[in-house]
Design a protein around this nucleic acid. Structure first.
Lengths: 209, 209, 209, 209
DNA sequence: TTCTAAGCGAGACGGTACGTCGCGTCTTTTG
DNA sequence: CAAAAGACGCGACGTACCGTCTCGCTTAGAA
């Protein structure tokens, strides 16, 4: 997190193991208890750490859960399945699989809800989770362009705007399907969704005119 | 909410005014404090009501907030703007406007988060909010079919599946844009989104094959 | 404590039993743990009461312990043993016996120590303990005067000053003997002390000039 | 504190200045904060010393405060004022003056309170403070005997017993007057007290019969 | 009308978690 | 090797809400 500060400080250094133990304990507690019944005291106990240690490193429940959940999404990758449609389907399915895990479900929506009243928290979510995964959209487009499936995007502003729209549509739809409609984002659903998205984006007239 | 038991019970009847006052106080508190700092004791005080009165009618914070927020979405309507695209843009803008209000933002995501671990709550959300607004999709389709913009849908199962997909895509994208990306779902964005959605849904091959 | 306020307030009344249980639990904890290891949480648990109930009635550990200890000294009485010397010896022995009990030892000195920085606490101690027991000095003098052992005191100011001096000398000596010198204030010691005190007070020239 | 091992140990020797700085900081903190709000971390900071240094030399708050307070009483001396009564009055006034200082008030009673449950602490208090000042009683008696005001005491046991009684009476009365009754032990009070004490001790029949 | 059962305000209650503070110990780097 | 710096496990603090429980007092339909 802090990068090039090699200033070896005096005093006992913070235990590196504690961070990992705390984040793992947080995910475990999210699975067992869910966001609202998760307590920092319990997390500390599970991690074999004192409450003060936890508070020394995170400002509160929200920040802790953001970090605990963010790691989950780093598993996402974009395997080359040969076509843009297949690539999208693949990554959407992965995303749905993660969102199906209880530690993600319970934690993610809660911190988003909290972030509506806490700008710093929203920034943290954006930095740790959202922007971090936008790479998938960019990779996907680059690959499709290389394959000749998409024309090279000339205007960088349009490119950004489109990438943002795609991300909002993909993430939003999967989240809504999974958490609000509470129905599985399975292969069939993903195929239907991807078809609409892809046709909408590539058909003539979609963004032209 | 109340079933059709017209059996007038004995004893003092519940005050009808109290319900309205409590829900209004809840929205007010959501605006000022947000979900997590909202307390039932405070709501009761704002409503000029005893805590017991509140608990006699709602099981807890979650149920209360669902009811308080649900009313906000009943304002949505589908004015006839002459074309399917315009109709969709109109309703999406309305939806975005509601989601921009702090009492909706803060409350809605929080109860959705809670609902990931509480089936009864999820059902209440679905009944009070989600399914209640699916009418807009159906109305829109009916109107577009009448105008000849869409072919009549023969298979009812496909119709339902498509309507669900549309709802997930619309609601999901607007929520994600507004709350996660935290950028305005303004006219420009809505136009771009609607174009992708509509082209995706109506282009040949989108759902055919 | 509150006297003529018969104003029957609204709401659930405070449990009278809780007060007694808390004070008894406090004395029990003083015996087992002593002042410095006594915690209000533990007292609440022993009393079968929530911590909040305790804090609703007492401002803190100091106030609670003053009340718990004050009751101990109400047992003191001045039995008629036939002479002023015997009366004094009797009450001093009783006082020493109480001070020998661990709940008194540990609690009393601690609150006195605290009271050096807290005027309200000092007043509470004076009202609940010190002034309350000055009755013994007055009773003793009245009885001795009736017996003819002491001349009637004419000047009320001198009477007060002398009573205060006696109280400081008696209480101070017993406390110092018991707690600081940590040797028993037994019959022999009490006899010696009383003799000095009484001779000092009654010999001609002692207060005469 | 340090025994007489002149054997210069290996390694860096303990800073002698640190001891003095810590005790001074302790007294300063007692004045500003009082016993109960005094923390060892704060004392260490005031003394410009690490907490570890402090713990290397004292076992805890109690021991530290005993040492810090003990030094205050070493100022006491018995100036020759010409008569036993005047000598006593002089030293009692000095004692009252010290007890009036906040660092003594707050600290002394607190460690006495603690000592009711800690034998080692009581011994430390006795050795550092009480027995150390008994010299004043002995000096006073010796001087009075030399002057012919008192007969030489033949029985050493009686002498000890009497000296202890005097000490308990003097120290006890002054402490009680100052801390519990919270009224000044001024010249007038001291004169009255001394008269009672001295008459009680020297009148025929006081210890005779 | 009076009776009576429920609703209502107030607020005390037993709990649970909070976030902070001080303790006394430990692990670092520096002198 | 001591000292400073400061992280650490621990346990108590006093507070805030929770949801429940008395209280005394309406209120309005049933008797």
């Amino acid at each position: 997190m802090q990068s090039s500060t090699p200033a070896a400080r005096t005093g006992r250094p913070r235990s590196a193991a504690a961070d990992a133990a705390i984040l793992a304990a947080t995910r475990e507690a999210l699975v067992e208890l869910g966001w609202s019944k998760l307590t920092l005291g319990d997390v500390a106990t599970r991690a074999g750490v004192a409450k003060t240690t936890l508070y020394r490193r995170w400002a509160g429940k929200n920040e802790l859960v953001v970090d605990a959940v963010a790691a989950l999404f780093d598993e996402l990758e974009l395997p080359d399945r040969g076509s843009l449609a297949a690539d999208i389907e693949g990554v959407v399915l992965q995303f749905a699989a993660i969102l199906g895990r209880p530690e993600a479900k319970s934690g993610l929506m809660a911190v988003v809800a909290e972030s509506t009243r806490d700008d710093a928290l929203r920034e943290r979510i954006r930095a740790s989770i959202v922007d971090r995964q936008k790479r998938l959209v960019l990779e996907g487009r680059a690959r499709a362009t290389a394959r000749g499936e998409l024309p090279p995007e000339s205007d960088p502003e349009t490119a950004t705007r489109t990438a943002d729209l795609i991300f909002d549509m993909v993430a939003g739809a999967v989240v809504h399907r999974t958490l609000v409609s509470a129905r599985p984002a399975d292969e069939e659903w993903v195929r239907g969704f991807t078809r609409v998205l892809l046709v909408g984006l590539t058909s003539p007239g979609a963004y032209g005119d």
